[in-house]
Design a protein around this nucleic acid. Structure first.
Length: 271
DNA sequence: CGTGTGCCCTGACAGC
DNA sequence: TGCTGTCAGGGCACAC
């Protein structure tokens, strides 16, 4: 379930074993994921030294010497498997260092791998249009007020739009709106100033908590077959159709469709 | 431009 | 033990 916290957790887990190491080999088991693999990917990666790892929105970045950065996206089902004891038929790219093996496994193949000149990262098209990082200083009520101005789309869909905020996905939009008491059906432009003042810290909090929970499973990475991954958070509304609202207000969690995807919310306390 | 729809792909699970 | 239908963390192309 790769949204921002999962990608952040993945990057931190990879960094433990990959940062500073030299890549000894790269194997591609298929020509493409969502997009074709870059033609020079193997040539650039093999023999390169990893100089650092980072994250932007839901993208993970592996910085190499020679001014190149490998950018991976996990799509819906992607994950990195570290030192797997068995190959998986959906391991599409396998990277090796002297001491470890890293397999990018993605059954649904909605993910991607790109190679970008490090100095040109900011102008990479997929990055150029992204909104602010939700855990950075630029996500403010003022920013949201301006970004949502005159929007007739619902706030749910506005927050999924990576140009408004970068890194939120279906789970955390549902959870943040619930915590902030904002109806997912409200038009973006109609979200009030006090609601936006509440929303920003709730976005920060729910993402931060999830990263913390993910971090607690980092010890698993060292285990054989350790899989980067998916922390066990209990969601307040996501996937809880029909259950009572945990605010104790007597509301029943409802599921609706918005933009072809499910939204869960409490009609009683989200206004 | 903004907005809405459908599709990319495999696997898990429920119901028969 | 199958089948069939539904749904799933995302993003993009395309139609208005």
């Amino acid at each position: 379930m790769p949204e921002l916290p999962e990608v952040e957790t993945t990057v931190r887990g990879l960094a433990q074993f990959l940062d500073g190491e030299r890549i000894t080999s790269v194997r591609l088991n298929r020509p493409n994921l969502r997009r074709p693999f870059p033609p020079d990917l193997v040539q650039v990666m093999a023999g390169a030294q990893v100089t650092g790892l980072s994250r932007r929105a839901k993208y993970g970045l592996i910085h190499l010497d020679r001014d190149a950065t490998v950018i991976f996206h996990l799509g819906m089902s992607g994950r990195w498997r570290i030192d797997p004891s068995q190959p998986d038929k959906h391991d599409h790219m396998v990277v090796e260092t002297a001491d470890h093996q890293f397999a990018l496994c993605d059954p649904r193949r909605f993910g991607s791998v790109d190679l970008v000149d490090t100095p040109a990262l900011d102008t990479w098209p997929q990055f150029a249009s992204l909104g602010p990082e939700p855990l950075g200083p630029l996500l403010t009520p003022q920013h949201l007020k301006a970004a949502l101005k005159d929007k007739v789309q619902t706030i749910k869909l506005c927050l999924l739009d990576q140009r408004v905020v970068a890194g939120l996905g279906n789970i955390y939009v549902c959870e943040a709106l619930y915590r902030a008491g904002i109806s997912p059906l409200r038009k973006g432009g109609k979200v009030t100033r006090p609601q936006l003042e509440r929303l920003v810290p709730h976005i920060v909090e729910v993402l931060s908590q999830s990263i913390r929970d993910g971090g607690s499973s980092l010890r698993d990475y060292a285990a054989p077959d350790g899989e980067l991954g998916y922390f066990a958070t209990r969601f307040a509304v996501y996937g809880r159709e029909g259950e009572p609202c945990s605010n104790g207000d007597g509301g029943i969690i409802r599921r609706i469709q918005q933009g072809g995807r499910s939204t869960w919310y409490c009609p009683k306390c989200q206004k």
